[in-house]
Structures are given as C-alpha cells and as structure tokens.
Write a protein that binds this DNA or RNA. Structure first.
Length: 280
DNA sequence: AACCAGGTCTCGA
DNA sequence: TCGAGACCTGGT
C-alpha cells in the first residue's frame, strides 16, 4: 500500500506500543489478535498478515496531516529541531482495552521489562494464533483464566490488572462510555481504576482515545521540561504548561520529545539535536 | 553492585 | 492540592 509521510521504525520503536520487534528489515507485531509483518520501502508499505489497508491506515494514524501538525507544534527551536530529526514518526491509534491494560502494567518499570510482562500475560491468558504468536487476552480471559499469573512476574501490578479485567467484564468499568467522553472527563473516569493515575490516564487518552492534547509526563519528559523549558513541579502544573505551550496537538510534541530523549539514552547511536538551555 | 524505570498509592500538611 | 515514602522486579 502507498503511504503518506511515515517512518515506520520511529513509529513502532518509540515506547508507545510494546508488541512490535524488528525482524531483519521487517517489523513483526501482534495487534489485538492479528499477527502482522510490515516492511517499509519508501512511500510503500509491504504487508503480511490478516489486515486490511483500512485497518492499517487507522492504526498508523495515516489520516493525521503530519505537516499541519508539525507547523502547529513547532513553537520553539528545540521541538522544531527534534521534529526535523525524527520526521515521519506518527502516534499510533491503539484499541482501548489493550492500550489501557498495557499501560496499567507499564508503571515504574522500563520498556524492556514491560514488553516481557505483556508477552507473558498474552502467553498465559491469550489465544494462541496460527503462527504461534499469542493474542492480547480479553478481560474475560484474564478474569476467568486458569493460568498462574505469578509466572508473568507482574509484581504488585498483578492485582491491578486482575481487578481491572473483572471490572470491565462485569460492566463496572464501561469502555464504550469512556470512548464517548471529552478529554478531562475521560481522564477522571480512567483514574477511578486502581493503578491508573495521571500519567497512565494521559497515555490512554492520547494513544487510544484520540485526545491529542493529552501530554503524559514521565520521568524523562519531566526532565526535558525542566532542562529545556525550565518548568518543574506537580504533574498538573508541568502537563498543563506543556499543553498551553504546544497547543491542541501537544501529545505529538510529547512523543517527539520522548523519542529524542530515548535515542539520547541509547548513546552511541544517531546523535540528536540538543537544546539543553532555556535560551531566553 | 548500585541505581533506575513510560508511576501509583497512601497519608499528612 | 501538593510533597514524601514505599514499592515488585529486572535492566543496565
């Protein structure tokens, strides 16, 4: 399929999704219960697996006008340089249950471990797919599964995920209702779930509810906000400042800042533009 | 071997 | 509303 401005590598390898990995020149991943392989060749995407182009257009947010978003969020030299450096990185539109359950597990951990926890969860409770991969488990499968959650090594997150799965299964937490809410209401509703706080709620809002103004602040973003923009303090304060600074697509700016920090930390590879000084 | 991690919970001011 | 401490576990 033909695609607009896109860098598949930056898009799949920036910590927003946890079930994709490199496989030679290809990318291999499981989305829900679909096993997919993707290869980008310029403006074309080669696709293997049980997916339609319509599904991929939606999943990869190919409907976002990246150039327009770049223009909107390029409100300072630092973010402009980072955008230039990582051109083509897109947010991904994840399904709500998988996204929320995944980020519920993501707290106070690191991407490598998060990936392992999720794979273990899928292997323990998810359906086995024809190619040997495992689907992301449904709330019912987690709530009613007979597998031993202990082998997933989730730590204290095990209780959170089981409690959340039960609530969704029983209708005590309504994902349909969630998807109809505005940003602030969605965040408040999400935070009723034990294990979902400010940051995870923002991730879910941004990655699965189309609330592009959401601005998740983790330790890295907090560091960037402090060092680059001179802002620190409570989550509310930092996130709110960023949302005012970057505007309605603040979430995109957040993800560009995040990938820049990430590549910075994987030292040795690809130098990134540095703008460590509140020039002003 | 320490330190850190896509944070949240609880509690006290 | 905010800040301080504790926290499963595994990466680096």
């Amino acid at each position: 399929m033909k695609v607009p401005l896109l860098d598949l590598g930056y898009t799949l390898d920036n910590g927003q999704v946890f079930r994709w990995s490199r496989d030679g020149d290809w990318w291999r991943g499981v989305v829900g219960s679909r096993s997919i392989r993707l290869l980008q060749e310029g403006d074309r995407l080669r696709v293997e697996g049980d997916v339609s182009t319509a599904f991929l257009r939606r999943y990869l947010r190919l409907d976002d006008d990246l150039e327009a978003i770049y223009e909107d969020i390029s409100r300072d030299q630092c973010i402009a340089a980072i955008i230039e450096r990582f051109r083509g990185m897109r947010l991904i539109r994840q399904e709500v249950w998988e996204c929320s359950a995944s980020y519920l597990l993501a707290s106070y951990s690191n991407v490598s471990r998060i990936k392992k926890m999720i794979e273990a969860l899928c292997r323990t409770y998810g359906r086995r797919l024809p190619d040997g991969q495992y689907a992301f488990p449904t709330p019912e499968e987690i709530a009613e599964g007979t597998g031993d959650i202990g082998i997933c090594r989730l730590g204290y997150r095990a209780d959170w995920i089981r409690c959340y799965a039960r609530a969704v299964r029983d209708g005590d937490f309504d994902l349909e209702h969630l998807q109809g809410l505005e940003y602030e209401q969605a965040v408040s509703y999400l935070k009723r779930v034990k294990g979902i706080g400010d940051k995870v709620a923002d991730c879910i809002a941004l990655f699965s509810l189309d609330h592009l103004q959401a601005y998740p602040v983790d330790v890295r973003i907090a560091r960037a906000m402090r060092e680059v923009y001179g802002v620190s303090g409570s989550y509310r304060k930092v996130s709110g400042h960023a949302r005012r600074h970057f505007g309605r697509y603040a979430g995109y700016a957040q993800e560009y800042l995040y990938i820049a920090e990430d590549r910075e930390n994987r030292k040795g590879l690809e130098p990134t533009p540095s703008c460590r000084s509140p020039s002003r």
